[in-house]
Computed example of a mutant assay.
Amino acid sequence: MARLKVDGAIFKGGDNLYSGDLADIAGRAALMEEMGFDGLFTLDTTVDPFMALLLAAEHSRRCELITGVAIAFARSPMTLALQAWNLQRYSRGRMILGLGSQVQAHIEKRFSMPWGPPAAKMREAILAIRAIWDCWGRGVPLDFRGIYYRHSLMTPTFNPGPNDLPDPKIYLGALGPKMVEVAGEVADGLYGHPFTTIAFMRDVQLPSLEIGLARSGRTLADFDMPAMIMTITGEDDRAIAAADRAVRKLIAFYGSTPAYYGVLEHHGWHDLGPRLNRMSKEGRWDEMTGLITGEIVDAFAVRGAPSEIAGRIAARCAGLVDRVTLYTPYALSDAVLPEIVAGLKALPGKSVA
């Protein structure tokens, strides 16, 4: 059985999730590789994720490079295909294209892009990307004709030509059952959203994933299972308390999103999502955080001293996932990371088949 892989954010956590500057990446990528991380991920927030990974590729040699996630509906499949193809070639096979849909308001009002049924549109986007890669890598004529995307023109000027490497893996960020099914059918891995509990994963996501895998003639043994896990830790009790406050704030933010209500409802917290949503529209962010009880925090996050984190994660999802993304949206000291990473890398990976 393969060991567990461990991924971390290129940018350090803080008040605004993970924010940073392109100038930070050279030093961070090299340091995180030295700490033992297997993969480096970057969000699609204030720094373009593909630009960030290009710099990370230049200043690392071993770590995989993951968009965690890039917003698919804000981009064309052709654009995504080319960015991932270029990074796969430059990094010598270390690129993982993590994709997500975002929610309708952001796609239409922030990106000014068309919305559609998210699961069906995402399925088509991934198939379009693969068709483009088949054209470049294997000479298959480009003739993808879907409902949302059509790609039927590829002239030599715009064809980057084959890579002497496998195609990049595609991980799909998914939460609800329909999108999870799509991941099982057309992606290489399910990029577990941080707003996921182990009960929701077992009871809702895994059955949906198996439906999608069956459509593609695969099983969990053929599929990657990375998980983003909110982690509350620090070098002392004061740092752990600050981390706890940051994670409660993040849970409140995620919980206010209607598309995520299903996770809360699965635990019987039926009124929490609508309450958080109303309060968010009124700007009552501090009060929202006050609704997140210790029981809710423990459902979504692991907490403890650095020496305890590996054991807490193992107790939560041992055998279910094959890589863990440490999701620490607060100022965490680099001094504690090597111990956490070493503990996690000693754990076995996925055992379900």
Rank of each mutant, 00 (worst) to 15 (best):
R3N: 09
A9Y: 13
D21V: 05
A23T: 09
D24P: 05
A29N: 10
L31R: 12
A56F: 04
A57I: 07
A57F: 07
T79I: 10
L80T: 12
A84R: 00
W85S: 02
N86H: 06
L97M: 12
L99Q: 01
L99W: 02
A105C: 00
S112V: 10
A119E: 06
E124W: 10
E124N: 07
I129V: 14
G137P: 01
G146K: 11
R150V: 10
T157G: 08
N163K: 09
P168C: 06
I170L: 09
G173C: 05
A174Y: 03
L175Y: 01
V180I: 12
G189R: 11
Y191F: 15
H193G: 07
A199S: 15
F200A: 11
L220N: 08
F223H: 08
M225C: 00
P226G: 12
E235Q: 12
A239S: 14
L250K: 12
I251D: 03
V263K: 07
V263P: 05
H267M: 10
H270W: 09
L272V: 14
N277C: 13
R278K: 10
E282P: 01
W285T: 12
L291V: 01
A299L: 14
A301C: 08
P306Q: 01
G311I: 01
G311W: 02
G311F: 05
A314G: 01
C317A: 07
A335R: 11
I340D: 06
V341H: 07
